[in-house]
Design a protein around this nucleic acid. Structure first.
Length: 237
DNA sequence: AACACGGGCAACCGCTGTCTT
DNA sequence: GAAGACAGCGGTTGCCCGTGT
């Protein structure tokens, strides 16, 4: 059978967080580090669901968050990343230090979407609104390789259904394998004064050659934890 | 001053893949 | 292997506040 429920929904608070709740959460995480959201509310003396605590911490309380307006550079980067990744806000956020997926999602829906519309660009497809509907696909082809080379392999015809390719010329998102973002993959000792990482990726996982239950490190396939590609290792120009 | 409206954003909801028992 | 919880994600909701009438 499965595990016991994460929290008793009948005894959890909902709605806006109070200052006291924030302080309790911050104090607890400072002391014990992130993780184990299931047991955190009880341990921290909070009448909240672990899920709610996680959200509050990630989106609002984390010390490395960059508050305030988005810069033009960030705007541009979000637009470019969205054109390539779609509504993968967590992946987009990973490329913008100090910004959260929720923040970017909200910003997209309230500002950028409108900005693109006013320019006559469909925010969903990143193509001119008045352009006829067609099947668009993002190309990851490097350099001057013709888009048709990619398109022809899937459609096999040069008729009306030919795959269109599109890319941001100044944004290089080619995948490269590199040691993953280390900071997130550390577990710290309960005492902050002695805070030394207890576990790091083993060499095999860092190289992406192992994914076994016997391995006690935190790395998933390619050292990506839970098998998710770490887009922080992508390069942008 | 009172009300209506819309924008912005924090928080919730529901789903999915993964992990644990 | 099955059942069920966990963690994380994207979509949506609802509240708050500023602005216009």
């Amino acid at each position: 059978m499965g595990r016991s429920p994460c929290c008793e929904k009948a005894h959890t608070n909902k709605g806006a967080w109070t200052k006291e709740e924030d302080e309790r959460l911050i104090a607890y995480i400072k002391m014990h580090g992130e993780g184990c959201w299931r047991s955190l509310p009880k341990a921290a003396g909070l009448l909240r669901c672990g899920k709610s605590c996680r959200l509050r911490w990630i989106n609002y309380l984390r010390p490395d968050l960059k508050r305030g307006n988005f810069t033009e550079e960030e705007d541009d980067l979000i637009i470019k990343l969205h054109s390539l990744l779609g509504n993968k806000w967590s992946l987009i956020a990973a490329r913008l230090p100090g910004r959260t997926d929720n923040e970017i999602k909200n910003y997209w829906n309230t500002h950028i979407r409108r900005k693109l519309m006013s320019r006559g660009i469909d925010p969903a497809t990143h193509r001119p609104i008045h352009e006829p509907q067609s099947t668009a696909a993002v190309s990851f082809v490097k350099g001057d390789q013709k888009a048709a080379e990619v398109g022809s392999s899937s459609s096999g015809s040069s008729g009306g259904d030919e795959m269109l390719t599109w890319r941001c010329p100044d944004l290089n998102l080619e995948l490269c394998i590199s040691p993953p973002f280390q900071k997130q993959l550390q577990i710290f000792d309960a005492e902050p004064a002695k805070s030394e990482p207890l576990m790091r990726l083993c060499f095999s996982c860092r190289l992406g050659v192992k994914k076994s239950s016997a391995c006690s490190c935190l790395g998933g396939f390619l050292g990506l934890g839970r098998g998710i590609l770490d887009y922080r290792s992508l390069e942008t120009n």
